[in-house]
Design a binder for these strands. Structure first.
Length: 799
DNA sequence: ACTCTGCATGGCGGG
DNA sequence: CCGCCATGCAGAGTT
């Protein structure tokens, strides 16, 4: 979206960042038409002068490279376009330089204007020197045009001292093949610092963001081919030649400048850079700059530490994809733009903006960090070290050891492989965060289908709700507890109430509309103590069990919450309320009306198999996704196994799949299979399978999902467990079949290397969906553990 | 066992 | 689709 702002500071429109109405003016020599501000009549034609920003009828110009529409007036702003020494215009969005063709003179690349350099990287437009239509001898001298950036950050920009603007290759158009990312963004001030008092001219050549390889111990700095060939001495032999480069401290380094043949091309490197890199204390993400001192031609090497405020855009593009370990849904993937800066699409401008904002000290770090997208969060996590921690945002425990971190940056896996413990702590944090995230109230989601998966879309962002504690009475009735922000007392609330972040017990209007709900109640000191203790224990166990499951790849606590014992044991609490923490699945939210959350433990009110409520649909969706993934993995493994031609290898994951399959195989299906006699091995192992199934079921079934929790707890009967599992498996199989996944189980089984072949599921029956949910939740937890374990294994496995 | 060297590979951006 | 380049990797060299 273009932000059209009148350049006339007298124009009332100029005080607003909102678009103004531009009306069509007279035709221009360069084509198109002048544009007049509807308010003040300012003729934008006066500032139209380039031949590459092709005119359209509104007086706006499109960059021939990036297509971004910029008003020609923006060339006056160092924020948007940099005026080049050579007399051109540099689009900051794409760094494409555009020769100036003054519509005033009609001569290409002849600049009719007078510039005065400011202290910033850009030039400040001050005057124009010739006429456009004869009626004006002097064009308007806009104050720095309220560019798009300025529109949103006017106050902030005014305090900026240095804009880091990419400089195009200084040596003319023969070298404009350099990718803009290598253009030096050294400021005039820095140039002056480098050149000092000498009469020499420092010519910025190029810069490069250090990759992990560059900053690693190999000591090889890969040079951009174009830069190497443009600015370094020509070499014909791979051995190259030694190159003397002076650093900012005046120390001279000798690097071997050489190349390797690579795909009929060359790959240029500087060898032996490790001492220099270490001397400058550079690491991946920092930038090295190369300049040349003229006329002596001495090469200079500078550096720029990766600013904490730098966006990932400043990094090699492939480093931008570290989302995988960021819990999905935790953050919007929307790019971060400051208010009013919604046209800042480019890496350069964003970077410059952020650098600038940082320099201006306008925004506190936390304020900016809040707005970073998940992408940028990902990058920051990868990049943080001791001195770059986002204090107060991420715990120091999330810091990644140097070596691991360096490997993670830009790793080919494109994954952010943070330490498993850190990952789990992060996961908990996100879980906790997600506990507080609720759909916006009174907003109905629209449903979109993407690749057969339905997603709920909300027009409004999620809201933060007040964190509450869920408990369960001995009777099985669930309760919610929250602390009043006014009287600080803990109040008992109906379980489906969603509280605002700030809540006082006087606001319980919901109680009026829900006569069946009991109003808030005080929590006695005893209850409070018990509740808080339990909550604390709950959290400890959650972490402990999570870590355990991450490391041992198995857990006796199937729901990952580590509190199943609390349900069983602590229900004998001494308080009148018999407070016991629930083991509700993490995805259940306050206000969730799914069967797991609302139904009493007696088992009444189950969802029907055909239920299409959000929860059921989500469960179905996730289960389908899981199955697809499993299938994919299995097919990959199949190929590997087939290649090895042996079947003695069963991974932990497959063991889990096996466990899962055991969970979902109906007992009678086994019997059917037995009768059919399709696999003799199966017969010999079916009893073992059943036993194992029961054990696993005991260990892994999320009891809290089960409506008849109390009965289940009391029951130690194998029969009841088996029957439960049988029952639970049926809708799953039905679902598999409905989705064309009926062969999945057997596929997986075969490929897992097990001798046991599973029968096709043939039976469909109508059973309640909540058990299915239990399994699905269970599977989701398994999946998380599995992934954690995989990560762990990958980290430990040298191969 | 570790480091160095030269090359290969594949992802990704640009044309 | 092509070329750049980040990174992996095997083999040689060194400790």
């Amino acid at each position: 979206m273009d932000s059209k702002v009148c350049m006339n500071q007298q124009c009332t429109s100029s005080s607003s960042s909102s678009s103004i109405d531009l009306k069509r003016g007279w035709p221009l020599r360069s084509g198109g038409f002048a544009t007049l501000c509807h308010h003040c009549g300012i003729a934008y034609e006066q500032l139209v002068f380039c031949d590459k920003f092709h005119s359209n009828d509104s007086g706006w110009r499109e960059c021939t490279t990036c297509g971004k529409r910029l008003h020609c007036g923006c060339v006056a702003s160092s924020s948007w376009l940099e005026l080049l020494d050579s007399g051109g215009v540099n689009c900051i969005s794409c760094s494409e330089s555009h020769g100036i063709c003054s519509t005033l003179t009609g001569e290409k690349n002849k600049d009719c204007r007078v510039f005065s350099a400011d202290d910033g990287g850009g030039k400040q437009f001050t005057t124009v020197g010739s006429q456009s239509n004869g009626s004006r001898s002097r064009h308007l001298l806009p104050k720095p045009v309220k560019s798009i950036m300025a529109a949103g950050l006017e106050a902030n920009v005014s305090s900026l001292t240095q804009l880091r603007v990419a400089r195009p290759p200084v040596e003319g158009r023969i070298k404009n093949q350099l990718l803009p990312r290598y253009w030096p963004r050294i400021t005039d001030q820095e140039l002056r610092q480098i050149s000092g008092d000498s009469n020499s001219t420092v010519v910025p050549l190029f810069e490069k963001v250090l990759s992990a390889s560059d900053a690693g111990r190999i000591g090889r700095l890969v040079l951009p081919k174009a830069c190497a060939e443009a600015y370094f001495p020509p070499i014909s032999q791979p051995e190259g030649l030694p190159l003397r480069i002076q650093d900012v401290q005046g120390k001279e380094w000798v690097f071997q400048f050489r190349f390797w043949p690579n795909n009929n091309s060359r790959m240029y490197v500087l060898e032996g850079v490790t001492p220099c890199i270490q001397s400058m204390q550079l690491q991946a993400g920092d930038t090295v700059t190369f300049s040349r001192m003229d006329p002596e031609g001495k090469l200079l090497m500078g550096f720029r530490k990766a600013s904490l405020m730098q966006t990932c855009s400043d990094f090699p593009s492939q480093d931008n994809k570290h989302l995988s370990s960021i819990p999905k849904g935790s953050f919007s993937s929307e790019p971060f733009f400051l208010p009013g800066a919604d046209n800042l699409h480019s890496a350069n401008s964003q970077s410059a903006l952020l650098d600038s904002v940082k320099g201006s000290g306008v925004f506190p770090l936390s304020a900016l960090s809040k707005h970073f997208s998940a992408v940028e969060f990902g990058w920051h996590i990868a990049e943080m070290n001791g001195e770059k921690t986002l204090d107060g945002i991420f715990p120091s425990s999330m810091l990644v050891p140097e070596r691991k971190r360096s490997r993670n940056i830009g790793s080919k896996s494109k994954r952010l492989l943070i330490d498993s413990q850190d990952a789990f702590e992060l996961k908990l944090s996100w879980e906790e965060l997600q506990d507080m995230l609720c759909p916006p109230p009174c907003v109905k989601p629209s449903t979109v289908a993407i690749e057969d998966h339905e997603f709920e879309e909300y027009d409004q962002p999620p809201v933060f709700g007040k964190k509450s504690i869920f408990t369960m009475r001995q009777s099985g009735e669930q309760e919610q507890w929250a602390q009043c922000d006014s009287c600080l007392k803990w109040r008992r609330l109906p379980v489906n109430v969603l509280l605002p972040p700030k809540w006082t017990c006087q606001e319980h209007t919901w109680a009026l509309s829900r006569p069946s709900c009991s109003g808030p109640e005080d929590l006695s000191p005893h209850e409070l103590e018990s509740l808080l203790k339990m909550s604390k224990e709950h959290k400890k166990q959650k972490i402990a069990s999570g870590l355990k499951s991450a490391h041992e790849h198995e857990s006796s606590d199937p729901d990952g919450l580590g509190n199943s014992k609390a349900v069983r044991g602590d229900t004998s609490g001494t308080s009148a309320a018999s407070i016991a923490t629930t083991t509700k699945h993490p995805r259940h939210r306050p206000g969730c009306s799914c069967i797991v959350c609302i139904q009493p433990p007696s088992g009444k009110g189950k969802h029907k198999p055909t239920c299409t409520c959000n929860v059921c649909m989500t469960v179905k969706r996730r289960f389908k996704t899981l199955m697809m993934r499993k299938k994919k993995r299995q097919s990959e493994r199949e190929a590997e196994i087939a290649q090895r031609n042996k079947f003695d290898w069963v991974s932990k994951e497959e063991a889990e799949v096996e466990s899962y399959q055991q969970l979902v195989i109906p007992h009678d299906s086994l019997e059917n299979h037995k009768r059919l006699g399709s696999e003799s091995e199966f017969l010999s192992q079916s009893n073992k399978q059943s036993e194992k199934l029961e054990e696993i079921g005991k260990e892994q079934l999320d009891l809290n999902c089960h409506p008849d929790r109390e009965n289940l707890q009391q029951s130690s009967s194998r029969v009841s467990m088996v029957s439960l599992l049988q029952e639970a498996s049926l809708p799953l199989q039905t679902y598999l079949k409905q989705n064309g996944l009926t062969s999945l189980v057997s596929d997986q089984r075969v490929s897992s290397g097990s001798n046991v072949l599973l029968p096709q599921v043939t039976r469909e029956s109508e059973v309640q969906f909540d058990e299915d949910q239990c399994l699905s939740h269970e599977i989701e937890e398994q999946e998380v553990k599995e992934e954690l374990s995989e990560t762990d294994q990958a980290g430990n496995d040298p191969s």
